[in-house]
Design a protein around this nucleic acid. Sequence first.
DNA 1: TCTCAGGCACCACTTACATCA
DNA 2: AATGATGTAAGTGGTGCCTGA
Length: 386
Amino acid sequence: MELGLSLGEPDAGRAAPELGLGLGVGAAGRGVEAGRAAGAAARWWAEPVSETEPAVRLSLVSGGLGLQWPPASGSGECHAVFFVLGSCSGFSISLHESWSRDPRRFSSLACVRAGRSTEALARGFDVNRAPSTAASALAAEDDEEDQAAGALSSSPNDSAGSFPLDLGRGGGAHGEGATARAGGGGERSSSRASDEDEGASARKKLRLSKEQSAFLEESFKEQSTLNPKQKAALAKQLNLRPRQVEVWFQNRRARTKLKQTEVDCEYLKRCCEALTEENRRLHKEIAELRALKTAPPFYMHLPATTLSMCPSCERVASNPTSAPAPGSSAPPAKAAAAVSNNSSAAVAPARGGEPRPSSFAALFAATRSFPLASQPRPPAPASNCL
DNA sequence: TCTCAGGCACCACTTACATCA
DNA sequence: AATGATGTAAGTGGTGCCTGA
């Protein structure tokens, strides 16, 4: 069972500075692969910034390596960047403050600008698309950025153009992406109609790549639900259909809920065990106390002056100041100790060796449980109650 | 203002398939 | 190589919410 699962609702307003940055770090020789993974683990929201605002500036510092993106002459548009630095490590990242403080920047998709990191993206996430298609899609992003996600889902041809899944990777090419939404309807109706379009061979399972899964996972950590804009943007980013992103998030939420249910179940089980044990112990204690009550009261044999009732609080108390009763050989302190010993002996087994304060004293403190209440009380001693 | 239909998102459940031991 | 267990992408039906007529 997995523990430590955080199920808190993601804070939609938490636009952390790390958002909008994809950063790849890899060891020499494996830069692209590692960069892909690291980039996939980075945040991805970004929204086209107004022309008047500065674009994000990244400061990557690694042993003197420092660069800013975009250059000072860059446009005002903001995009996520996936740097693939094959031999760099240990650098830090800082976003331009004015950019990182505005949550609006993260409400939509990060688009990788062709010419800066296109190749990194294409190699990193283009598992379902032919390279040429990826390049064209990226090139087309300039025109599509401000169309938002609605264009992605509203255009009948968009799925064929933007999500032409090449499933030959896993031997599962079935062209679903091109035909799923050919009807021009919404994602739901279209995807559900895909079977009709594709016949019996439709259910060929697509396995998302590790990069895609990691990216989706990171996105899920940020937000467990997606609005249509984000969904379409993420789908575009990962070269998936929006329906696939939607399904992935649905399944991911289901898995999260299932794990949380398991954690809750385990917790409740332990609570139940603890309560059962407590219940058993209390029953045992009740039985012992009842047996004690029916037995001849041991305090009948005590000297009358050893135990006394406080007139104010009506609690039994030992009276060390009282003189021993005539004929009694037990000193008061010893008699009190006998009471104490008896109480311990009577109660201790019920607790399994653990003393249980107050239970036995409460038995004596209760007037109704004092069998000698009807008998003449011993002389009222000086109150030793506090 | 109320009602109703349509669209959409989500969920629970299920199925089918890929992967692994 | 065959097989069962497991994980997961995807399908299906239901429900609730929202919006426009």
